[in-house]
């Protein structure tokens, strides 16, 4: 493991642990009033984990599409590897969003699933990027694999906002809570602090995963190259 990724991973892990501490011991508990009784909603604590994971997944999937476009423009192999690694890391976080999200909807809404714009968008996103990996594994020739992968990563990135907007058209009424709007965040003080610490921790951790994966992809290609050299020689 490279030193840079090790430092990033440790910094990310420390921040994430600090985030867990802040979320449980510093940030105030979410309270709901039902018939003059105050109930503490501990399930709200997953917010400090679920939302950073979701935003990290968006960042990396967007980067995947961006690097994909750069690969198509320049045909430099390194961009293709960057695109693939970014989509891979993004996909891990998409799966984490689905798992944490489903746990939370069960705890808070009483159901495992609800056809709601955000949930629908993420399910479509999960299936779309699953298709990305199936597509890549179904192409043998390296250059075609790179081209098709890059093209689909761009299409998928374009499709995510469209799915979200379409979901809001009518039948699917948004019930998912919204914290961040154009007017700013609807939380402050310790809550915001706990969230931001988790958010940066998650981003650092994901970046370290991305760098490690990229190194691995490059090393694998070097080995392939050396193998061919040996066979020819």
């Amino acid at each position: 493991m490279k030193k840079s990724s090790l430092i990033l991973a440790s910094a990310g892990a420390l921040l994430l642990m600090a985030g867990v501490y802040l979320a449980f011991f510093v940030a105030p508990d979410a309270v709901v009033r039902i018939d003059d009784r105050e109930l503490v909603r501990y399930s709200q604590k997953i917010f400090y984990f679920h939302v950073p994971v979701a935003e990290t997944s968006f960042v990396f999937l967007l980067l995947g599409g961006l690097f994909g476009a750069m690969y198509l423009g320049t045909r430099k192999r390194s961009y293709e590897q960057m695109s693939y690694a970014a989509v891979e890391v993004g996909f891990i976080f998409v799966l984490l969003v689905m798992i944490t999200g489903v746990l939370w909807t069960r705890a808070d809404w009483g159901v495992w699933w609800e056809w709601e714009p955000r949930l629908t968008t993420f399910l479509v996103l999960t299936l779309m990027y699953s298709g990305y990996f199936v597509l890549r594994s179904s192409v043998q020739e390296e250059s075609a694999k790179a081209r098709f992968g890059a093209i689909f990563s761009i299409i998928a990135a374009v499709n995510v906002p469209l799915t979200f907007v379409a979901g809001r058209l009518d039948s699917l009424k948004p019930v998912h809570p919204t914290v961040f709007t154009l007017q700013g965040a609807s939380m402050e003080g310790p809550m915001l602090a706990a969230f931001l610490v988790s958010m940066f921790g998650m981003l650092l951790f994901a970046t370290s995963l991305y760098i490690m994966r990229l190194d691995l992809l490059r090393a694998r290609e070097d080995i392939e190259y050396l193998k061919e050299e040996l066979e020819v020689g």
Partner: peptide, 27 residues
């Protein structure tokens, strides 16, 4: 055009096409 150039050919199209067409379907 992409799917026809893969090993699985016509099997690949629904996997790529359906999720991308979902927004259009909803509308």
């Amino acid at each position: 055009t992409i799917s026809i150039n893969t090993k699985t050919r016509d099997l690949m199209l629904p996997i790529l096409f359906l999720p991308v067409i979902i927004p259009l379907l909803i509308a």
